[in-house]
Structures are given as C-alpha cells and as structure tokens.
Amino acid sequence: MNRGIYIIANDKVIDQAIALLNSIRLYDVNTPVVMIPYDDNYHHIADLLNTYYGVQVYADLDFIERLSQKLHATFGGQFFARPNQFRKQACWFGKFDEFLYIDTDIVVFEKIIDNLNHLRHSDFICCDYQHLGGIKNVFNPQVLKEQVFTETEIKDIFNGGFWGSKKNLISEEDLYTTFAECANHPEYFDFSEKTSDQPIINYMLLKRVPRRFNIIRREGKAPGNWAGTPHFQTHNHLLFDTTVNQSLQYLHWAGIRIQPGCPYWEIWEYYRNLHPAIPLMDIPATANKTLWERNLASIKNKLRRLNTSL
C-alpha cells in the first residue's frame, strides 16, 4: 500500500514547515511527504524541504489551478477569507493510495503515518475534539432546523488541519457538485472566524463518506491536541494529557499565532531548531516587551547559536 503525507505551504510559512518536518522525521525517516503549493510563492520552501527532508512538490499543478478557477467561478472572489486553503483537496488525486493531510502549524510526537491503520475499517479518519464545541466554525443551526444533518451526524464534524483518507474516494465532480450545493445555501455555514474550507469540506464528508472514524473514539480514549488546552504537561519535549494519562500524538496551534509567549512555545521552538544543518530561527521580540526583555531575548538567541555550533 502506497502511503504518504500531504502538506500545503508557501514561503511565508517556512519556519512552521521546518518544525513540522523536523517532528515527522524524528520519528519516521521513510514516509514520503508531498507539498501542495498554497500559491505561486513557494519555490524557496520547496527547495529547502526537498534538500533536508526529501519533500516533493505535488505533480499535477494543472489540477490545482483548475480547482482554484472552479472555486472562484462558483463562489466569486469575496466568499472565503482564504480560498487557497481549498488546494489541500488535491490530496484526493495525488500519488498516495492512502494519505494523511497535516497543517504546517502542527508538530507530531510519534510515527504519525501509523494512524492510517484505522483505514482498515473506515474510509476517512480525523483526530480531534471539534464536535465538543458544538457546530461553531462549521455550521449554523439552520442545518439542524432543515434536517440537512442529524444530531448524530454533526458529532462527526472535524478540524480541517489533520485528516486522512483514500485516493479517489472523492471525485473531481464530487468537489464541484459540493461547491455548487454550498454556494446555493450559504446560510448553512459558519464563516464568522474565517475558517474558509473547513465548513465546505465537512459538508462534503458528511454527505458523501459514510464510513468515518474519529481516532479520539478509539478504545481507551485518546489525548487532546489543541494548543489552546492549558493542562498538558511537558516532559522531554513531549506533551502529556493528564485527563486520559496518555502522551499527545500531535499538537495543533489552530487559531493561535505561533510566537514567543504563545501556548507551548518552547515545544514548537525545540522542533523548529532541531535540524543541525538549518540555521536557528531569529526569534522576534513581542511588541509589549520592555527594552530589558528584548535585550535578554537577544542574548539568549546568541547563546543558543553558540551552543549549537559547539
């Protein structure tokens, strides 16, 4: 079985992509990774990720352009805050028979590709607690009032930053039909926090893929994975969820700017700077720091660089 990982990125998220790939390769040096360009500004990151991690650029760039044009033709230019997020749907038509899609604002703490073993009994997997917050950031209550989905079905909503499935399970026509259905019913969706593709893709999966599995429902439960969760404990550059007595599989900074002072910054910084051949990241000083704090941060940067070179 041909398995692999897809990411979507451009030159603006180089540091995030480095952190993600460092974490993936720490536990798995063999699984192939393919990058879907977020836009045309991707050549620097493509070269870097290929040099150090063997990452390949998605082969069929014509499909990605066709997808973007169809999306624009269906919804117009103002419907989504970040329409290029839909490019991740190229996963369905790439080189891998089974695949994981992972956002770049994630680091992993295990051989993450092994989660695809759950596809033995399902066609689509995710691993999050999105549903516990209700339907916010995905649907409006209208979908229940009009019985578009049942209460049971909407318990399968998921965050679009981490999921896995099988090649050609969704066809190109399925995508375009979904776009048309959703464009006719904008009242179904919650875009209040600029989630872009997430509501539409949830709609498509709930309508077209009945065999779904959320890994958090596995036997023995599963840990959380959102960086906004305050109770995770750090140990040896890993995180531990005390509510289920398990180590995290991955951590996702969804909706959180990754910068000094953000939740679990030290974890992200460790993975970003893990590869000895890649220069350390220049850590920006936050705007509200005093001059003394900014000078201290500069000294720490210099010391870290010195220690790395020794």
Rank of each mutant, 00 (worst) to 15 (best):
F139Y: 02
L144K: 05
K145N: 04
E146S: 10
Q147G: 02
Q147V: 08
Q147E: 08
T150I: 02
E153D: 15
E153K: 09
G161A: 06
G161E: 04
W163G: 03
G164S: 01
G164P: 00
S165M: 06
S165H: 05
N168T: 11
N168G: 09
L169H: 12
S171L: 11
E172R: 10
D174H: 13
Y176V: 12
Y176P: 06
Y176M: 07
T177N: 13
T177S: 12
T178R: 08
F179M: 06
E181P: 09
C182M: 07
P186R: 08
Y188Q: 02
F189H: 09
F189V: 12
S192P: 11
S192L: 15
D197W: 05
Q198N: 01
I200R: 03
I200T: 00
I200Q: 00
I201V: 14
I201N: 01
N202A: 12
M204H: 07
K207I: 10
K207R: 15
V209Y: 09
V209N: 01
P210V: 11
R212F: 15
N214K: 10
I215L: 15
I215T: 08
R217I: 00
R218S: 15
G220F: 10
K221P: 11
A222E: 13
P223H: 06
N225Q: 06
N225A: 12
G228Y: 14
G228D: 09
